Amino acid sequence: MTEITHAPIAAFAAERINLPHTDAVKHRGQVNGLRDRLAAKIAADPAYGLVKSLHAGSVAKSTALKSVNDLDLAVYVKAAEAPENDSELVPWLADRLYEATTNMDRDQFEEQTHCVTVHYLGSGLDVDVVPVLHEGEANDVGYLIKKYTGDRLKTSTRLHLDFIANRRKTYGLEFLELIRITKWWKRQVVTRTDPDFKFKSFMIELIWAHLADEGVQLTDYPKALETFFEWIVKTGLEKQITFTDYTSTFPTRGSDPIEILDPVNSENNVASRYDSFGRDKILDAAGSAYDALTDARFATTKGRAVDDWQELLGPTFKG
């Protein structure tokens, strides 16, 4: 048999791609230590300025790769007590985080453009703490300050997690694993072909969610992946992607080359920073992946099929 079937792809993902459960628990445990200290400080000091913290990002969604070494934490800030000047918010947050700890130095709280990175010296783990301005809205709705424009961006960490979790319940663990495999493919493109290649993980998650909602079967990885890349090539990423989990009202298709609307905030196009050149890079990479998968399906030798799959998964894949 020459065709690469579901089983070796799933085995490769289990061995090389997926973050082991024990590691995920350990990572979350370290972040929980910070969360517990923040919760204690919030409870003890009404003037502290913070409301709560929530796990966020790929580890919280179970879409993280095995090689992950940084986690995300959303910290909700009382909007009325945040600095009036947005440029002061991250340094202010760094000071608040430092105040809540007893065994860390101030320089372990590194101020970035839009977050504070907490460096754990023992484990080497980094935690990106993102401030969310909270005005008392339900469902942990708050407002990010956009990285490049300074605009307020409505969001909800909890609803984003629920969005992925609900589809995991509906479509199974394959939904999460296909996201991880695609993120692994993206990494191969960056490391082996184009170091400037961009394909935001959130976009990958939302495209898979859209395809799953449209009825694409996820239990056969080669077929599902071929469908993913074929969809990108055939649509040219010109189709507006929307979700009705939290709203039924959407803006008309705008002029952005790619338009994938945030399920929590339909006014937010998560692909707004991609120009035509960036879109074409994704189309080219997806086209190459689709061609490789098609060739693998009709390969007359096992070696040829493995070579094709190595275009997606890298040279460590042996079939």
Rank of each mutant, 00 (worst) to 15 (best):
T316H: 07
R253N: 05
T193P: 10
W92Q: 06
T247G: 11
M104L: 13
E111F: 00
L133W: 10
G287P: 00
W309F: 11
A64W: 02
D295P: 00
L283C: 07
G136Q: 04
V68E: 02
G49N: 06
D213F: 00
G278R: 12
R152W: 10
R192S: 15
V129N: 02
D23A: 14
G254T: 14
Q310W: 00
T235G: 05
I282F: 09
F199Y: 13
R180D: 08
A305S: 09
T227V: 11
R158E: 12
V233H: 03
A44V: 09
K223W: 03
Y48A: 06
Y274T: 00
T193D: 11
A165P: 06
D36Q: 15
Y76G: 01
V141G: 03
I9P: 01
I181T: 06
F202C: 09
Y171T: 02
A100M: 03
D107M: 06
T117R: 12
T294Q: 09
K61C: 10
S201M: 07
T63G: 02
E15T: 12
I4D: 01
T157L: 03
D23K: 15
A44Q: 12
N268V: 10
A292M: 05
T249H: 11
T294H: 13
I42Y: 08
I260H: 00
R158D: 08
R28W: 05
L211N: 04
G314P: 01
G172D: 08
D291C: 08
P8L: 02
V141A: 04
R37M: 13
M104Q: 07
S255G: 11
V77G: 01
A56W: 13
H210W: 07
D280Y: 10
E81G: 13
H6Q: 06
E135G: 09
I4T: 00
G124N: 10
T149I: 04
G29L: 09
L121V: 15
K66S: 11
A100I: 04
K302I: 05
P131L: 09
L38M: 08
K61T: 06
V51N: 05
K154Y: 03
D284G: 10
G142E: 04
A224E: 07
S255Q: 12
K146H: 15
